[in-house]
Amino acid sequence: MIELRDLTAGYGGGDVLQGVDLAVERGSITCVVGPNGAGKSTVLRVISGLLRPRLGEVTLAGASIAGRSTPDIIRAGIVQVPQAGGLFGDLTVHENMLVGGHVLRRDRKRVKRRIAELAEAFPILGERAGDKAGDLSGGQRRIVEFARALITEPQVVLLDEPTLGLDPRASAVVFETTKMVQSLGATVLMVEQNVRFGLKLADHGVVMERGRVILADTAEALLARPDMSALFFGSTPQAGEAAEGREEARKSTAAGSLA
């Protein structure tokens, strides 16, 4: 569905991504994990058009989309749900949905129809339509953000750290909502710090380190690997050892969020 080939991109003088190869299957959930600075979020920024690649190719269903503007990429069928804070808290829930349909603004009937359709799948859109989005709980905000992304009927939804800053209950909402997005026909490519959460949700997993993909497999196979902690926190021995303790602490949080 989406394919990245030898993708190189960065900010200023440095390359954050150094030849990334990645393929995402249609209808799947693929989760990218890796230590801070691995380039996970940069991958999403390049796909969504916020950052131009310096080299390499990005294709959607075989067609090149590398370097196109964000509105063009949304029209092509890819939307990104940003990290926490991407919801427009001063706007009502309904206004957030309208803004989500920005690229369709000349087709008001379609926007209206999509909001009505999505309100059936996500009842909160109707129940809290007139409330300010900033007044919703963490989980509710995430639902609105997901629903907002679906206005344009995307083929691919990119999720950037969907559980960042959320408590276990809200994370569980994200889990269910992501599954729902998949069941509605979208392919999901997500970046997640919470490794166990991400891989339990995903069909496929990709591990990145220092701007490269170092491992790609089914999520189940990745979860079963005994060296997963070292892979996540960095493959250098010191980093791996130091990370073990933190990962143990993190396990309980992740387990709680999936309970």
Partner: peptide, 23 residues
């Protein structure tokens, strides 16, 4: 209006606004 909502969206989150296709 869409222009007004775009302005208000940018006031809250420029990154979020960019990701829904607002220039």
């Amino acid at each position: 209006t869409f222009v007004g909502r775009s302005i208000r969206a940018c006031a809250t989150s420029r990154n979020g606004a960019a990701l829904v296709g607002i220039d």
